[in-house]
Design a protein around this nucleic acid. Sequence first.
DNA 1: TATATCCTTTACGTAAACGTCAAGGCACCG
DNA 2: CGGTGCCTTGACGTTTACGTAAAGGATATA
Lengths: 152, 152
Amino acid sequence: MNTMLRSGALDAASESVLGGQEELFRIGDMAKGFGVTLRALRFYEDKGLLSPVREGTTRLYTHRDRARLKLILLGRKVGFSLRDVKQMIDLYDPTGSNSRQLRVALEKGEKQIRRLQVQRAAVEDAIGELDALIGAIRAQLGTAGKTREIAR
Amino acid sequence: MNTMLRSGALDAASESVLGGQEELFRIGDMAKGFGVTLRALRFYEDKGLLSPVREGTTRLYTHRDRARLKLILLGRKVGFSLRDVKQMIDLYDPTGSNSRQLRVALEKGEKQIRRLQVQRAAVEDAIGELDALIGAIRAQLGTAGKTREIAR
DNA sequence: TATATCCTTTACGTAAACGTCAAGGCACCG
DNA sequence: CGGTGCCTTGACGTTTACGTAAAGGATATA
């Protein structure tokens, strides 16, 4: 179980100026840890959703990247597009969190929640419809035998 | 408002054997009537969701096609894939509706409704999360905003 | 006859979210 | 020294649901 970076060219680099001793994950660790593919992680980076630092060419994911990935996966899980997710992340994680940005975030968040409510209503509609159809089929099956034209 | 087919080569053809005087719509009528594009209608046909008859090369949509299209659009509206919709339509509209087919339809319908319920739960989760985030942002802003529940 | 509509088929383009090779670069293991 | 494993960057493939020409046929009307 090696979550820490197994010593690389990093030691000579820097990271000693500030006491911030960050745990750095490599892409494989991330993939396993979060149950996503390497391709997905690179794709998210390509789309500006993640921005791991580099040790040479190797990606190193920080705490912040992990937090972002959690949000990405939450978003995906509930059916947001990556673009939506990016929007929300960019808003939720405003590096310079001033009140203007927060206000924008709030606005977008509210817009998004309204979209979700619409979506929920649609799904509930669908459930209702399907439920009705299922009921109709059950009724048909109840009167098993007569093959009557299916009701309009 | 010309919903009836404006006399074509049909008169000489047939359609007089049975008293069934069907209203036939052309693709443009369908498109306007249902608010979809011609391309979509042809696409649905290509995918086996619709099967209008032909007067020469021109598509003519019957009552049954209109019923199917309604279902297609209902399905699309609530986020089903066309493949799902096709499954459901094929089930819901079993030309030879015997009890075996109905039973299959019932099973698939129930499976589908379970998927929908999962989807609804996911959306509700998302709403909850977003609601929490919005609350957090409001708090950050110190905005004496109403932390009122938007959800539910 | 000319024009305007409406119809047809063929077929490439698009956006999303990756999958799936391909080809190659370090680092450690025996 | 040759694997084995993990990493890299391309770059084309896939699915869904159509959009968007392109090029032409048929019909209704001026």
